[in-house]
Amino acid sequence: MNLGDFSFGNLGHAYLPDKWIFRNYGGEVSRGQILSLLGPNGSGKTTLLKILLGALKPTEGTVKVNGQVAFVPQLFQVAFDYTALDMVLMGRAKNIGLFSQPTKEDEEASLRALEQVGLAEMAHRPFHEMSGGQRQLIIFARALVAEADILILDEPTSALDLKNQNAILEWIDRLARQKNLTVIFSTHHPHHAYAVADRALLMLGESNYAAGAVNDVLTESNLSKLYELPFRRVCYEYKSQSVETLIPVLRPTKTALASAESY
């Protein structure tokens, strides 16, 4: 198993006896690859991420990790008005002894990480005053300063506008391709997985899942089964390249139908 590799097998978790959230799940991802986790609300995505992170012991099964893991939670509020620099500095926790305080080197490393995500000038601004996208980038900077090999993100694009969603996806891609980090992220948007992920895991039911390469797993039939909605494959051009993705066919509004008729 190489550094940054991540695999899990026969994984199952039940908060109550015999009330399985999922069972016999398995999957793997190699260094520098991106794994996307998709499932409807209540399917156990966050539980699975907690298990992969090591914060929750699975009821059964094993998780094999080689390397340090960092976590980027869903957009969250901090109880106190820490600055962006304070937040990034916390990523150094593993390198700092129980009764020790961060050194000047730790602060410099944190500032460098903030520079990398383009927010160095905001180092002394309160974290809670920042936009959702900026906060997410600060948490990315925290993961960078932790010198992690594997990054786990819980719905990183939720509650963000389209521009910020795109920026976060670009960052996920950059971290995997340029920093050679293994990235695992959960999402509700199949086209996000299509845009950046190499592999995908679909949580279809208690012991029903589909895992593998994105093109093999993210199919119309799998996604239709997962979200109980029809999906259509569309092609578009992005920077002179032909790109394919899947979009859900949502119920059209009366206005949309009327304009279609007039067309």
């Binding site: 090591g54 914060a55 340090q68 976590f71 109880a79 820490y82 916390m90 926790a93 961060p102 786990i152």
Partner: peptide, 22 residues
């Protein structure tokens, strides 16, 4: 006084603090 910086980490919540390796 020794633990004062660690309290910053703890104030983020259990899951986040655990993910930072403490």
């Amino acid at each position: 006084m020794g633990l004062r910086w660690r309290i910053n980490l703890l104030s983020l919540g259990d899951l986040d603090a655990k993910s930072l390796g403490i």
